[in-house]
Computed example of a mutant assay.
Amino acid sequence: MRAAFRHAALPAGFAALLLLAGCGGSDTPAPTFKAPTYDYLTKLRLNVGQVQIVDQIPPPGPSDLSAQSPVQPVDAMRIMAQQRLVAAGNSGTAVFTIDQAAITGQPGGTLNGTLAAHLDIIGPSGGHNGYAEAHVLRQFVPGTNTDNDGLKTELYNLTNQMMSDMNVELEYQLRRTLGDWLLDASGAPIGATVEQQNLAPPGSGSGPSAAPAATAPALMPSSSSVGAPVQLAPTSTLPTPATPVAPMPTQATPDLNAAGPTQLAPPPQLAPQPAPQNTPPAAATVPGTSPPPGFLRLPNGYLAPSGGTP
């Protein structure tokens, strides 16, 4: 009986342990929602004496769920402006105005987020000197963008995504439209394009900082030449030839317009040449040997020069 009771009580105790283990496993920690921070990013240093943040968002509508977000979009926008916009000048005011910061719910659980802001540069006398604006739109669709982790988590994630886009968009618009009002860490304007360069003393003629030399005539020596100066002959004194050159004689050409025909000399008459006589064919010669001895016969009718023999 004791053995049977012992075996019967064991399953009951084991079931109690399983029940306690199941209760302990269901206690999951609640999610934590931290406010965004932008201290690690580059400061946008404006050439103004102060920065003001103004909230001008319209009243929430019936479908506006921004108030249920652990970090409301309007608060995130204010944190971004406080941590990124810095007054680095002596006068003037930069007014950062929050125009829209809302998340509205749609049928089926879809969430639409909208952020909008603009920045005005106001001079010391109250004049408007610059303007920039930024807009961001985001949408969350349940089951497609992220897992469904509850409405608060979805609102928080959508707010962080919108603020990541707004942070980039605001800096881009400021650099694009208000670049002349941005300063670097040393206080110099970022948009300045003039570079400083030291000039070398006159006459050095070399070095990376030497000024370009003016264009000089080809005959003048350069100021950077090394050695003794070059002596140039005066341009007015030029060497002349020792003896004058006689002009070439020219032949007179007949004047075709003169009176009377022009008599031209007849061409020389050539003496008729007698026809060649038949001569015996020359003996064939073997290459490399002299021709056989013989007599040279003159053609008939040939007259030897005076004083000679035919």
Score class of each variant (00 low, 15 high):
Leu85Trp: 07
Leu137Ser: 14
Lys43Met: 01
Gly307Leu: 09
Val95Thr: 14
Leu119Ile: 14
Asn145Ile: 14
Ala30Lys: 15
Ala228Asp: 11
Ser290Lys: 15
Lys152Met: 09
Asp149Asn: 13
Pro305Arg: 05
Asn112Met: 12
Thr279Ala: 12
Ala252Leu: 09
Gly130Ala: 02
Ser69Met: 02
Ala9Phe: 02
Ala265Trp: 05
Leu115Ile: 02
Ala94Met: 09
Ala3Pro: 04
Asn148Thr: 07
Gly22Val: 06
Arg84Leu: 12
Gln106Lys: 09
Leu182Ala: 10
Ser204Ala: 12
Ser164Asp: 15
Gln106Trp: 02
Val245Asp: 11
Val141Tyr: 00
Gly294Pro: 03
Leu183Gln: 02
Ala101Phe: 01
Ile53Lys: 05
Pro208Ile: 08
Gly25Cys: 06
Asn167Phe: 02
Ile190Thr: 09
Thr32Leu: 14
Phe140Glu: 01
Arg176Thr: 13
Leu17Gln: 06
Ser66Tyr: 03
Pro124Asp: 06
Ala3Phe: 10
Phe5Cys: 06
Gly191Pro: 00
Ser236Asp: 13
Val168Gly: 05
Leu20Gln: 10
Leu170Asn: 00
Ala252Thr: 11
Ser223Cys: 07
Pro249Gly: 10
Ala210Arg: 08
Ala200Pro: 08
Met220Lys: 02
Pro31Glu: 13
Gly24Met: 10
Pro281Tyr: 03
Trp181Ala: 10
Thr110Leu: 04
Gly109Lys: 07
Asn47Pro: 03
Ser91His: 08
Arg175Pro: 03
Met163Phe: 03
Val136Ser: 13
Thr279Gly: 09
Phe33Glu: 01
Gln106Thr: 04
Thr177Arg: 00
Pro234Thr: 12
Val230Phe: 03
Ser204Gln: 14
Gly203Trp: 05
Pro241Ser: 12
Gly13His: 05
Ser204Pro: 01
Val71Met: 04
Ala21Thr: 11
Ala94Ser: 10
Ile98Thr: 08
Ala16Trp: 10
Gly130Glu: 05
Ala271Arg: 08
Val226Phe: 07
Gln231Pro: 01
Phe295Arg: 08
Arg78Leu: 06
Val86Arg: 02
Cys23Met: 12
Gln139Asn: 11
His135Trp: 05
Tyr302Asn: 07
Glu195Trp: 07
Tyr40Glu: 12
Gly123Pro: 01
Leu20Ala: 15
Leu19Pro: 00
Met77Cys: 08
Pro221Lys: 05
Ser306Gly: 10
Pro291Asp: 03
Pro221Glu: 11
Gln273Leu: 15
Val245Gly: 04
Ala228Gly: 00
Pro208Met: 05
Ile121Gln: 09
Ala16Asp: 07
Pro249Cys: 09
Leu46Pro: 04
Ala12Asn: 04
Gly113Trp: 05
Pro31Ser: 10
Asp184Asn: 15
Pro299Trp: 09
Ile122Leu: 14
Leu115Arg: 00
Asn47Trp: 03
Pro293Met: 07
Ala117Thr: 09
Lys34Ser: 15
Ala188Glu: 13
Tyr172Pro: 03
Gln269Lys: 15
Glu154Val: 02
Ala259Asn: 10
Ser91Gly: 07
Val136Ala: 13
Val95Trp: 04
Thr37His: 10
Met220Leu: 10
Leu44Glu: 09
Ala252Pro: 04
Asn198Cys: 06
Asp120Glu: 14
